[in-house]
Design a protein around this nucleic acid. Structure first.
Lengths: 247, 247
DNA sequence: ACCTGAACACCGTTCAAGT
DNA sequence: ACCTGAACACCGTTCAAGT
């Protein structure tokens, strides 16, 4: 697109350790990769592109990162490291709710990495240990221990990352417009006799309910649904805690 | 791997519409793609590979499917179409719980497509409309309407697909072994002073808690966590229903 | 309408060679 | 230790040409 300088002046660079303030690091590479993904989406990400941005040969990137997958995991970790842990003094319900909100705020700033969070085991390891400990400590405070602690923890993580992964799942890369129009058409021509409840609530659901939408969370945020999701999760956890106490 | 017949006998095939029982269809292509993914993982999926399996030129596949992304969406739809809708006579709590379980059973049969379900908006449209209507009808039965219906629905879908996406998220493609060993090492050498709760419950959490595991749901299924996730979601929904009734 | 055959512009990764 | 330069074996997609 912006490549219109054909008499490309040959940049003579030398091999070996850089003399200037160069100092390419894994961190630096991940930052550049994140920038690329933020700007143009995951589809525009490639080792070669990142190398080009850093004005370096592809092999150089590989010297630092080993593999494309590893770099993406690094990027995911970079994003999740931005999540500020909620203050420790909150009661457990508020702490969990705050975590959900802060996590979403961070993902909102990097929506294109959302699909990396839940969907790959490598980048599942991206949540900072500090947050993991925070969740566990909070749930322990709420009265969960042993297997109940494990279950409550998994529920919290799945509910949080799962929702965000879906809310910000990317649109088709190619002809977004045509695709959106087609889905919108399909949703609005659903046969009322086969799908009465859907039809009756179409105005409420169209483009705001999962599976029935053609824009993602970047364009059409699911604010109220997310807040409700928090409440439902916490109410469910409380019921769980009650069941334990009763026993 | 199994390619050791170099004097490949040239298969002379003719262009044009196939005479025999050929009849390549989008459906047929998606089935072959699914088979490939089931066997060797999403990493081994490519248009060319699918074409080879069908004994056809890559361009032929493109004539039927338009794009790689579209084919993957088709594959996701194929899988989710396998989910048998729960019987309609169940009370709403049981219906939702059954849906969760049936959905999981299906994804368990095709774990490698899990990462497609939640993470791409194209394949978000994969859930059959019949199930969507089922969820809506069930929730309407439970007393949710208008915006509450939207919120409850989004919560159900996110909770269900979100958990499954994470439980079956794929391992790194390359040197799985080394990666697993490294993560296991990292988890077991967490500093006790910084992460007391984590350390205290390490035996309970290691390789069974999200972020702290190196095997996915195929090897180490999160059965009890999933059942608890169902209960928590339903209890939360019930609390939500109560809040509405009170108002 | 459906397919072949070939081509284009990309990939990730490896490896010898430089400094 | 860190990088160049080139190569290898793949990709997805397009397009004219066949039948």
């Amino acid at each position: 697109m912006t490549k219109q300088s054909p008499p490309k002046p040959p940049k003579p660079r030398t091999a070996g350790r850089p003399s200037g303030g160069g100092g390419l690091t894994k961190q630096r590479i991940a930052e550049e990769a994140l920038a690329q993904i933020d700007e143009f989406g995951l589809g525009a990400f490639s080792m070669r592109e990142v190398a080009a941005r850093l004005d370096v040969y592809p092999a150089t990137v590989h010297w630092h990162v080993s593999t494309r997958e590893a770099l993406l995991a690094e990027v995911a970790a970079l994003v999740m490291a931005e999540v500020p842990p909620p203050p420790g003094k909150l009661v457990w319900k508020d702490w969990i709710a705050e975590l959900f909100r802060r996590c979403r705020a961070t993902v909102r700033r990097h929506p294109n990495v959302a699909q990396l969070l839940g969907a790959q085991l490598v980048s599942n390891g991206s949540l900072p240990m500090e947050l993991v400990e925070g969740i566990l400590a909070t749930l322990a405070d709420a009265g969960f221990e042993d297997e109940a602690l494990l279950e409550a923890y998994n529920c919290v993580v799945a509910a949080m990352l799962g929702f965000l992964t879906m809310e910000f799942s990317p649109l088709p890369a190619d002809n977004t417009q045509a695709w959106a129009e087609e889905l919108r058409e399909r949703v609005h021509t659903i046969r009322p006799l086969d799908h009465p409840v859907l039809t009756r609530n179409l105005a409420q659901l169209a483009n705001k309910a999962f599976i029935l939408r053609w824009d993602n969370g970047t364009t059409v945020p699911l604010d109220s649904s997310f807040e409700r999701h928090i409440q439902i999760t916490i109410d469910g956890l409380e019921a769980f805690a009650r069941r334990i106490r009763v026993r």
